[in-house]
Design a protein around this nucleic acid. Structure first.
Lengths: 207, 207
DNA sequence: GAATAAAACCGGACCAGAGTCCGCTTGAGG
DNA sequence: CCTCAAGCGGACTCTGGTCCGGTTTTATTC
C-alpha cells in the first residue's frame, strides 16, 4: 500500500437532511485527515506496533485526546484505516469488472469472491487483527460481504438456510483461520483456495 | 462452573526423562495452584473483567511478578484456566459415552461433536475470548479437535482435501462467528446447530 | 460586517492495567 | 550445613483510555 491515502476529495454537498448527524467542524475534519495520514505512514514505515495513539497524535501535531475523540479507540482508528480498502473492495464488487463485479454468472462470481477475499484478508491481516471488533471487520463491512454471498447463493438456487450457509462460506476466510493454516500449518494460499472452492461446490451442488 | 477447580491430584511420578523440563519447585507449584483458584473465583464472583493480574496475585497472596512468571501473560492465565474444561472435553471424546465418545457410528459422532463444541464454546465464550491466541484456543487444543474431525471424515470416506474440509467444519463454530450469529443477529443456538448439521451433510455427502 | 453566545473541539494531565527488571529469599541436593 | 539455581515481590515503564478547563468555530442578531 502506498503512503498516499486517497481521502475522498470534497464530495458533493452533504445536503443536510435534518435529523442527520450534524457535519464535522472544519478543524475537526482537518485533524481526522491528518491523523489517518499519520497513522498510515507510521504503519508503512515502522509496522503496526509503532502505531501508538500518542505517536499518531504527535505526528499529526495534535493532542492525544483528539485522536480518541475522532476514532474512539485504537481499534476504531485501525477500523477507519481498514475502511478505505474495504470500501474500494465493495466498489469493485458492486460495479467492477467481472467476474468479481456484475456480469459473470453467479458461480464464477462466487469463486472470484472467495479468491478476492482470501487475498485482501491476507494483505490486510495486521490491520484486521488490530482493528479487533472481536477480530472481524466492522459489522457494516461484514454484513455487506455476507449479503453478497447470500445473494449469489440465492441466484444459484441453493436450498436450505442460506444465511447460515453464507456464514459457513465466509468463516474459513477469516483472519485467524487463515493465519492458522498459512502461517502455522504452512499450507499454501493456493491450496487453501482450492479447498474453499471445493467447499463452495459441495454447498452449492444441488441435492 | 463451580468454584471448585479440580486440579489433578498428585499424578503418578513424573519419571524425569533427561532433557525434559525440570520439575517445578514445591512453592512454585503451590503458587500456581493458588493462582488458578484465585482467578477462577474472581471470574465466578465478579466477572472476567475483574481478573486483573494484580487482583489475582493479591487474592492468591503473592506478588504480581509471580503471576507473570507462572503464566507468561494474562492470556496465558486464561488459557490455563480454559485448559481444564478443554481437557475434560477431550477425555469425553476419547473415552466418554457415545455418541460423542467412541462406539457410535462416525456420522453420529460428528453430529455430537458439533453440538458439543457449539455448547462448550458458548459457555466458555468469555474465557476463550480472553485467552486470545488470536482468539482461538491454544494450538494443542485446536489441533486435537481438528484431528478428531479429520479422523471422522476419513471414516466417512469423504474425498478431497480432508484437512481443509475439517477446518471448514470447525470455522463456523469459533467464538466470533457464533457471537455474531447469536448475539448480534439473534439467531437461536438450535438453528445454528441445524445449519451446521446441514453443512456437515453437504460436506460428507458422497459425490 | 461586527458582536456575542452556544456548541464543538483541543490538549495534556491523569488513571489503570499489562508486562519487565533486579536484588533479595528460599527450597532441594550434596 | 552449604550452595546456588529457582523463585519471589514490588517498584517501574509503557500504552490505552478518561477528563476537564480553556480555545476556536459557527450561528445568530443587530
Amino acid at each position: 500500500m502506498s503512503d498516499h491515502l486517497d481521502l475522498p476529495t470534497r464530495r458533493p454537498v452533504p445536503l443536510p437532511l435534518l435529523g442527520d448527524p450534524p457535519p464535522e467542524r472544519a478543524d475537526a475534519a482537518r485533524n481526522r485527515e491528518a491523523l489517518l495520514v499519520a497513522a498510515q505512514e507510521l504503519i508503512n514505515h515502522c509496522g503496526i506496533d509503532a502505531v501508538t495513539m500518542e505517536a499518531v497524535a504527535h505526528r499529526a501535531g495534535v493532542g492525544k485526546g483528539t485522536v480518541f475523540r475522532r476514532f474512539e479507540s485504537r481499534e476504531g482508528l485501525m477500523g477507519a484505516l481498514l475502511n478505505f480498502s474495504e470500501t474500494a473492495w465493495q466498489a469493485s464488487v458492486i460495479s467492477g469488472p467481472p467476474p468479481l463485479g456484475p456480469g459473470a454468472d453467479p458461480w464464477d462470481r462466487l469463486a472470484a469472491f472467495g479468491r478476492s477475499r482470501l487475498e485482501t484478508t491476507m494483505v490486510s491481516a495486521d490491520l484486521i487483527r488490530a482493528a479487533g471488533h472481536a477480530g472481524t471487520r466492522s459489522y457494516a463491512a461484514y454484513s455487506f460481504a455476507a449479503m453478497h454471498v447470500r445473494h449469489l447463493l440465492a441466484e444459484l438456487r441453493v436450498e436450505g438456510d442460506v444465511p447460515l450457509l453464507a456464514t459457513a462460506l465466509m468463516a474459513p476466510l477469516e483472519v485467524w483461520v487463515l493465519d492458522q493454516q498459512v502461517r502455522v500449518e504452512g499450507i499454501g494460499v493456493d491450496r487453501v483456495y482450492e479447498g474453499w472452492l471445493d467447499l463452495a461446490r459441495r454447498i452449492v451442488r444441488p441435492t
